[in-house]
Design a protein around this nucleic acid. Structure first.
Length: 390
DNA sequence: CGTCTGTATGAAGGAAGAGA
DNA sequence: TCTCTTCCTTCATACAGACG
């Protein structure tokens, strides 16, 4: 996972300077899983640019035995020296693959540039506090997480016949800041998620990860189909409102005039904590769903006002009689929302992902501010909305 | 008055770590 | 070991003050 890995037993993790990276080894089981996805006819060079204790290359060797040449690079000199003693037949170099001068000086990199079959990799993951690196790729320029930085450097400089097989955190694949970069990558690479890994595979970490494959060639995306949903011909506009009040603030606020506070654990069952910030209160009716954590059955809430926790999202139909239709649509197509829940750590639903889900169901969502009265919709349907006085 | 720069605030994404 | 809550970080926008 990390180019800062220290040689030791696999499956253990070693904390390095937390301002830089957490270092984890690739567990043998994960290495075998990744290698099982490689094609049968690999006969040339296979490279791991963050070789660490060599788990990935060992898995490659046990599958292809002597038919492949193994190249490994790691930024940590001690790691490379230890591995050289263990595996004198591998070509191992100490270099920083993120720096062109450093990698160009290494023998393993030069051999990989000349002729390469496959890259297997488990790059350093992003983590809290990491601002990321500035990356330029095609028309994309921006800050990306370390794992994505690594991947971008490699796909920009190597051309393996069978492509790149990488273990990446969900954040690397799903974060909105990477969205444009992936769109750019998919212009010239076929990108496939081969497997999703369990969150507990890396000892000491809780990360959602996947094995992905990038191969030269354009990805053809299927247009998302609009699913069948109830449509009575009326206005299908809905407001998406993300709650704004963190739980800890709700607890410490001064009581003025208690307003029900709605948190994930209280979906459908309003609580009365200490908060009463009427400015942040939202007008029902709406369908409540949780934003962070696992998917819970949505609930409708028809009596307001309420204060929404920042962990929940309210979906409010502009045409009030549509509340039941909206609720039933969400319940019926729950799998759509389950698929949209992603995250390296906890799972969460982004407003964009939610918007796409609702669009697939034939709704016309727009993102509204919490605590602000709903404005009439601009759709063609002739419906009038009256809130508050009903 | 318009522009530039610095600061405050808000919105949203996202991961650590507590607790079950 | 896994789930879920808490709340941190980043980015965007609004606002205020300095300056020409």
């Amino acid at each position: 996972m990390s180019s800062e890995r220290v040689h030791s037993e696999s499956t253990q993790h070693v904390k390095v300077d937390p301002r830089i990276l957490d270092a984890y080894y690739t567990p043998e089981a994960v290495a075998r899983e990744l290698v099982s996805h490689l094609p049968a006819g690999v006969t040339g060079a296979v490279m791991d640019p963050t070789v660490g204790d060599g788990a990935l290359l060992r898995a490659v060797h046990s599958r292809y035995e002597e038919s492949v040449t193994l190249l490994g690079i790691d930024v940590n000199g001690k790691t490379v020296r230890n591995l050289r003693r263990e595996r004198p037949d591998w070509c191992l170099s100490q270099a920083d693959c993120l720096k062109s001068e450093s990698r160009l000086a290494s023998k393993a990199w030069r051999l990989a540039r000349a002729d390469l079959d496959v890259v297997v990799m488990n790059p350093p993951f992003s983590h809290r506090g990491g601002g990321g690196a500035w990356v330029e790729f095609g028309d994309f320029a921006g800050h990306v997480a370390p794992a994505v930085h690594f991947l971008t450097e490699l796909i920009s400089n190597l051309n393996p016949r069978h492509g790149f097989y990488a273990i990446l955190p969900d954040g690397a694949l799903r974060a909105e800041r990477h969205e444009k970069l992936w769109a750019e990558i998919e212009k010239s690479f076929e990108v496939r998620v081969l497997a999703k890994l369990r969150t507990s595979l890396f000892a000491g970490a809780r990360v959602s990860t996947s094995i992905i494959h990038l191969k030269s060639g354009r990805t053809i995306r299927n247009e998302p189909a609009v699913l069948q949903s109830k449509n009575n011909g009326s206005c299908r506009c809905v407001d998406i409102v993300r709650g704004r009040v963190p739980v800890h603030k709700a607890r410490t606020s001064v009581i003025k005039d208690p307003v029900p506070f709605i948190h994930t654990s209280a979906i459908g069952a309003a609580q009365h904590p200490q908060s009463s910030d009427l400015v942040l209160s939202d007008t029902t009716p709406f369908v409540l769903i949780s934003r962070v954590g696992s998917w819970r059955s949505p609930r409708t809430l028809e009596i307001g006002p309420v204060v929404l926790s920042d962990c929940v999202i309210a979906i409010r139909p502009t045409h009030r009689p549509n509340l039941t239709d909206l609720f039933e649509d969400i319940v019926e197509h729950e799998s759509l929302f389950l698929d949209a829940l992603r995250g390296t750590g906890a799972q969460y639903l982004t407003l964009r992902a939610l918007t796409e889900c609702l669009q697939k169901l034939g709704w016309q969502p727009r993102i509204s501010r919490s605590g602000v009265a709903p404005t009439p919709c601009l759709c063609a349907a002739e419906t009038r909305v009256i809130y508050g006085s009903q």
